[in-house]
Simulated assay, not measured.
Amino acid sequence: MFPRTLVSFAFLAALSTAAFAEKLTVFAAASMKDAIERAASEYQTSGGNEVVVSFASSSVLARQIEAGAPADVFISANIDWMAYLVERDLVRTDSETIIAGNNLVIAGPAGTEPVENPSAMLNGRFAMGDPTHVPAGKYARTALENLGLWKNVEKNAVFGENVRVALELASRGEVKAVIVYGSDQKAAGELVRAYVFPADSHAPILYPAAATRDGAESAETFLAFLKSEAGRAIFTDLGFSKATE
């Protein structure tokens, strides 16, 4: 079996070199920061064109694309914001693909012990994404509602404009706990996982990606890289779950 870097190079080299002359602009959900930065680096090292990435909440990025922002690829943290752009004919639907999945967890500072009841971690100030527009916040609120806890803990919630802002509040000790994706907790390092929400307490956490309607030709080449063996290995290494269509 060839080393992954060689496989990636062969994969890219087999494609038209004309596609690599342009710079590729990727708009990606904040929770994808580490994964997409690593993927962009490996893609370029393997012979792909330059990739510039902008990270923010999926809602913010989708609305920027709607307003005419020059993005080539959109990667959302849920299917709703991808659907928002599909409805407006702003992405190439034949390029749409699910690149990764995730789970939802409660994390706390070092020394935090696992809990069976999430209310034990949410009886003081805790952070989460703003549920009015941040996918992680929407998943969190839905999970807490389905567990019958939201009405009791809502008053303790501090909302972040994206999941990484919520994570930073916990990392600085400004809140007792934070509800984030499993991959975010793993990336934080100093925060430990105390609780994993049951998969049936919220909709499946999926990351759809697509080339924008007017995106560069190489947009779909980058998407193919994300779905390749090398791309999947990056997501797995950083705590994402397997992509399921």
Results as ranks from 00 to 15, higher is better:
Arg125Ser: 10
Arg125Thr: 09
Arg125Leu: 15
Phe126Ile: 13
Phe126Val: 07
Ala127Arg: 01
Ala127Asp: 00
Ala127Phe: 01
Ala127Cys: 00
Asp130Trp: 15
Thr132Trp: 10
His133Tyr: 14
His133Phe: 12
Val134Met: 00
Val134His: 02
Pro135Asp: 03
Gly137Phe: 06
Gly137Thr: 13
Lys138Phe: 00
Arg141Thr: 04
Thr142Leu: 06
Ala143Ile: 03
Leu149Asp: 14
Trp150Gln: 06
Lys151His: 09
Asn152Lys: 08
Asn152Tyr: 04
Lys155Pro: 02
Asn156Glu: 13
Val158Tyr: 11
Phe159Pro: 04
Phe159Asn: 08
Gly160Arg: 10
Asn162Arg: 10
Asn162Ala: 12
Arg164Thr: 09
Val165Glu: 13
Leu167Thr: 05
Gly173Lys: 05
Val175Ala: 04
Val175His: 04
Ala177Glu: 03
Ala177Pro: 06
Ile179Asp: 04
Ile179Cys: 02
Ile179Val: 12
Tyr181Cys: 00
Tyr181Phe: 14
Ser183Leu: 05
Ser183Thr: 03
Ser183Arg: 00
Ser183Gln: 09
Asp184Ser: 13
Asp184Lys: 05
Asp184Tyr: 01
Gln185Gly: 13
Ala187Lys: 01
Ala187Leu: 02
Ala187Asn: 05
Ala188Phe: 08
Ala188Glu: 15
Ala188Asp: 13
Leu191Met: 05
Ala194Thr: 11
Ala194Val: 11
Val196Ile: 12
Phe197His: 06
Phe197Leu: 15
Ala199Asp: 15
Asp200Tyr: 10
His202Glu: 12
His202Ala: 10
Ala203Glu: 15
Pro204Lys: 07
Pro204Gln: 14
Leu206Val: 13
Leu206Trp: 02
Pro208Met: 00
Pro208Ile: 00
Pro208Phe: 01
Ala209Met: 14
Ala209Val: 14
Ala209Glu: 14
Ala210Thr: 04
Ala210Lys: 02
Ala216Tyr: 01
Glu217Lys: 03
Glu220Lys: 09
Glu220Trp: 03
Thr221Trp: 13
Thr221His: 11
Thr221Arg: 10
Thr221Glu: 15
Phe222Arg: 05
Ala224Asn: 11
Phe225Trp: 00
Phe225Thr: 00
Leu226Glu: 14
Lys227Gly: 06
Glu229Gly: 09
Arg232Pro: 01
Ala233Ser: 15
Thr236Leu: 12
Asp237Tyr: 06
Asp237Phe: 02
Asp237Cys: 06
Gly239Trp: 09
Gly239Val: 07
